[in-house]
Structure formats: C-alpha cells, structure tokens
Simulated assay, not measured.
Amino acid sequence: MSGFPPYAPVVGGATQAFGAPLTANAVFLVATVREGGIDTARSVLGGISDTIKAVAFRDPTSTLTCTAGIGARVWPELARLPLPAELRPFTPVTGAVHTAPATAGDLLFHIRAERADIVFEFERQLVDALGDAVTVDDETAGFRSFDRRDLLGFVDGTANPVGIEIAEACLVGDEDPVHAGGSYVMTQKYVHPIAAWSALSTEAQEAVMGRTKADNIELDDAEDGQKAHKTLATIVDDAGAEHAIQRDNMPFGRPGAGEFGTYFLGYSRHLWVMQRMLERMFIGNPPGLHDRLLDFSTPLTGSVFFAPSAEALDALAD
C-alpha cells in the first residue's frame, strides 16, 4: 500500500502519519473552505510536506507530523478525484438520552510533535498560508497525560492495532484502488463533568469502562443487560471478524475555566466501523441501554474526513 508506513518511526517529520506514535503535544484544527478558497486550500495541502521539512529541520527529533483530511463537501472540487467509496458527511446519531451531533468542517489538520513550540510554529505557518481562504471552526490543543491516560483517569487507546496490523486496520486497500493508502478519519470533541465522575467509586468507574483503573486489566464482558464502554466500542462483523481502528485521542482542558475533555480522533480503513461504534454507544446494544460513559462525556462536535496517501496529498500541488 502507498502512503506513510504506519509502523515506521518518524524521522525529521512526515505527512499522513496514520500510525505514528503518540506525541507529547498535538493540535486538532478543523476549518471550512470559504467561497473562492478552493485553489488556495489545494495549494496549501499540496505543499504541507515542504512546510513540515522547513519546520522539522529546527529539531529533527521532535517527530513533527501533520495528517490532513478533506471532507465530502469540498472533495470533488478540491481533490479533483472521484469521491472515496465511503466518504460522506458525519451522520448524527440520536439515542433516547444522548446525541452525537454533526458540526461544520471541510478540512482537518492533525498536527503532532514532542515539542509544543514546533507544533505552534507549524500551525502558524499553515494558518498564515491558508489566510482568508478558510474559516477556522475548531482549534483544540491536546497533551499526553501520564501513561496515556484520559482526564477520567483511564488508559486510552488500549485496543489500538500495533505494528503491521495498523495498515490493515487503517489504510484503504484494493477495495477502492484510486484511494488506496488513504484513511477515513472521524473526530469528536467531548467534555467531561469531572466532579460528577469523581463522585463515583473506583469500582463504579471500572464497570462503566470495562477495565481496571490502576493497571488497565480488561474485565469480563456482561453476558446480558448493560454493557461496558469497552464492549460497545468493539466492532465484530457478521462473519465474526473484529475490526480495529487507530485512536489518536488526547486530553485537553482549562482547569481555570472548568473545562476538561477528550478529543477523539479515529483512523479506519472503513468508515462504517466507526459509525457502528457510535450507534452501539449512543443507541445501545440492545437499544435503550446506551454507553454509560456518555453520562459523563458530552460530544460537542462531529466531523468526517478522508486523509489521502502522502503521495496523493503531494500531487494536489501539481
């Protein structure tokens, strides 16, 4: 498959780094292309690899990467390629209690590095280049928390694929050859009522998550009735095959403003896998028994993008 080797180390920076290791810092930037801004957006996207080289040169060990995604609304005009087979706008999911909303966004820039100043400088140059061709819909700065824990205190991304399994889980293959090497991306920004979560006992929190808090050991699945988040977020098809996704979630927040959250970002070979995950969480399995984590995690945004391979992204500049 073409595109960034998802299990290789990042040396001096890279584009479309679908499986790059979690870094200390990240920015999730979502923007809408304004009328007349397509040509500028295309040019900037096609030049991202050069911008990465210029910024990463200051510290090649910072592992700077930027993965760019394009939404369905602007894909035909911007990419000038057929629509990826499963690409479409984010589909809201409405359950009896909770709803996953759809929000604006044509472009996604997932910027990662070990150093916050490297992330900042790359984003500054990116935003300057885009200028008034876009409107920024959301800009969220994330950070790695301890041993990859979210602000609820649990290890995040435990079920991520590893090594060569990442390519199988994340990268489109021969089923859509024009877009082979690319990946579907879903983003959601969640906020947490930390006081309410902290009021639960550790055992109650573990029952919601399906894992122990201290040592991240998986608990047994409930045979019937209410299922844990771990179970509802595991997708198995009709043939019994499990479908993993790559989660690059990061905590964010402002304690002084009472803001505590998790930015969910998932890469997948198939968009339907992430859609089914949301349906199991918000509607429930069986329906009516929603993921109890949603009682403590409120989604504010929801967007879908397709991240083309590094070669396809570079080709936009031609």
Rank of each mutant, 00 (worst) to 15 (best):
A167M: 03
A167N: 01
E168Y: 10
A169G: 02
A169K: 00
C170Y: 01
C170D: 06
C170H: 01
L171W: 01
L171P: 04
V172M: 13
G173H: 04
E175W: 07
E175L: 06
E175S: 10
E175N: 04
P177Q: 04
P177W: 09
P177Y: 09
P177K: 07
V178E: 13
A180Y: 14
G181R: 03
G181P: 06
G181C: 10
G182C: 05
G182T: 00
G182H: 03
S183I: 09
S183C: 13
Y184E: 00
V185S: 00
V185G: 00
M186H: 09
M186C: 12
M186P: 01
M186G: 04
T187S: 15
Q188Y: 08
Q188V: 04
Y190I: 05
Y190T: 05
V191K: 05
V191E: 13
H192Y: 07
A196Q: 09
A196T: 02
A196G: 01
W197F: 05
S198R: 14
A199W: 02
L200S: 03
L200D: 02
S201C: 04
T202R: 15
T202I: 15
A204R: 11
Q205M: 10
Q205F: 11
E206H: 01
E206K: 02
E206C: 05
A207R: 06
V208L: 10
M209H: 06
G210H: 04
R211A: 13
K213F: 10
N216Q: 04
I217L: 15
E218G: 12
L219N: 09
D220R: 14
D220Y: 11
D221W: 14
D221M: 07
A222I: 03
E223H: 13
E223Q: 13
D224S: 15
G225F: 14
K227S: 13
K227D: 09
K227C: 07
A228Y: 00
A228L: 02
H229R: 08
K230G: 15
K230N: 15
T231G: 08
T231R: 13
A233P: 08
A233Y: 03
T234H: 04
T234L: 03
I235H: 06
V236L: 11
V236C: 08
V236S: 11
D237N: 15
D237H: 07
D237K: 01
D238S: 15
A239R: 11
A239S: 15
E242F: 09
H243F: 12
H243N: 09
A244H: 12
I245V: 15
I245R: 00
Q246I: 11
Q246C: 13
D248K: 07
N249E: 05
P251S: 12
P251K: 02
P251Q: 07
G253H: 02
R254P: 04
R254T: 12
P255W: 01
P255K: 06
G256F: 07
G256Y: 04
G256T: 01
G256W: 11
A257T: 02
A257N: 09
A257S: 09
G258R: 06
E259R: 02
E259K: 06
E259D: 05
